[in-house]
Design a protein around this nucleic acid. Structure first.
Lengths: 204, 204
DNA sequence: TAGATTGTTAATCGATTAACAATC
DNA sequence: TAGATTGTTAATCGATTAACAATC
């Protein structure tokens, strides 16, 4: 299979999210265009890019298409747990670890870190909480691959660097800071502030 | 000024975030490449796209460049408050409204909504909390332009539709659902789950 | 000046789009 | 069959990249 462009990967990942909660058996590119806001030509091109040819004249079987996207993009299945940690246990970090958002997902939080001892001692979770000083040892030992970064802005860059040094492959960045990471480490910026600015820019 | 491509807008918005916390007087495209992970040719092209020509042979004045980007992209300044609301006051929504992330920003939360009466009555904030039924009247009355969507997944689509109907211009989507919105309403997907999947897809 | 970086051009590269034969 | 949608091609469109004269 040829290499899949970055833009196609993002669209396919979004389609996978759509399909995961889709209730009917079959789905057409027209329905997906309407639901995901992606042109149906692009959708069919993206599907063709991953080599999936299960479509027939009344659409794709939703579960087959979902499986094909997951396989092509190496998206984890719910039963293949991938270990994550949360760095920064302030209001937002604590909420992310407690709100149950990862419960049915392939991503499992197995550690929390904070540089303030009172946060790691006061909070409770069904996984261990550590002082930030333990990051470099715990992350490799616990086979943690991904990190949720929710520290205060003034610590963001330092912590991102330490997460990268500790071996995480990706960081979900909730801070308002732009992170500088080594090649090979992927950052997804999900700061609500950046998101709002992106909306302003797009809305013109 | 010609129209600015979507990809350029996103990069420039990221550069604006970078510049907002940049401490030195001058910055070069090489520094920005290193810090934001964007090729310097693209950075200079993007800057040229917005018609900014303040650069000299030792870089750009950071504050001038930031002002130019904000103006070209119509990004709000800290003193020009834009009103937002939070829909869904569970653990995550409550944390977002209490964590102070919007404090120094141009975005001001002026209302919270939840369909569960006990949430709007138990929680406290320095802005009013309403039952979801009030959305359609409060949003236009309070001149709310943007919404943070943090409801449970099973309510996500319905609430997004109601937010759009109520007149918001953009939705920051924290839910795992893909939202279907009318043309003209902008959605930024910041679900941690989607972000993790995007990281997996990108990391190959 | 010597060195470094900008601003811009032109070439390349890649992505989007439209169209339609093939298929069910 | 008639109608609808896929899969794919080719054309178009737009974005990225490299290069370099101009500038400080």
């Amino acid at each position: 299979m040829e290499k899949i462009p970055e833009a196609s990967k993002r669209r396919l990942t979004l389609l996978a999210a759509l399909l995961a909660s889709f209730k009917e058996e079959k789905i057409t590119s027209i329905q997906m265009q309407k639901m995901a806001g992606i042109d149906r030509s692009i959708i069919r091109k993206d599907i063709s890019l991953i080599g999936f040819k299960g479509g027939v004249s009344n659409g794709y079987k939703a579960d087959e298409l979902l499986a094909a996207i997951r396989e092509a993009l190496k998206l984890p299945l719910p039963e293949q747990k991938r270990f994550c940690c949360i760095a920064g246990l302030g209001k937002l970090g604590a909420a992310l670890m407690q709100c149950g958002i990862f419960d049915e997902s392939p991503f499992k939080i197995v550690a929390g870190f904070d540089s303030r001892v009172n946060r790691t001692e006061v909070l409770s979770a069904d996984f261990p909480l550590y002082p930030a000083a333990k990051m470099e040892t715990v992350i490799p030992e616990s086979k943690i691959e991904f990190a949720i970064l929710a520290v205060e802005d003034d610590q963001a860059r330092l912590m991102a660097e330490r997460l990268a040094t500790s071996g995480v492959k990706g960081i979900v960045n909730f801070t308002g800071q732009v992170l500088e990471v080594p090649a090979g480490v992927v950052v997804e910026n999900v700061s609500p502030l950046l998101a709002l600015n992106n909306i302003c820019a797009k809305a013109n």
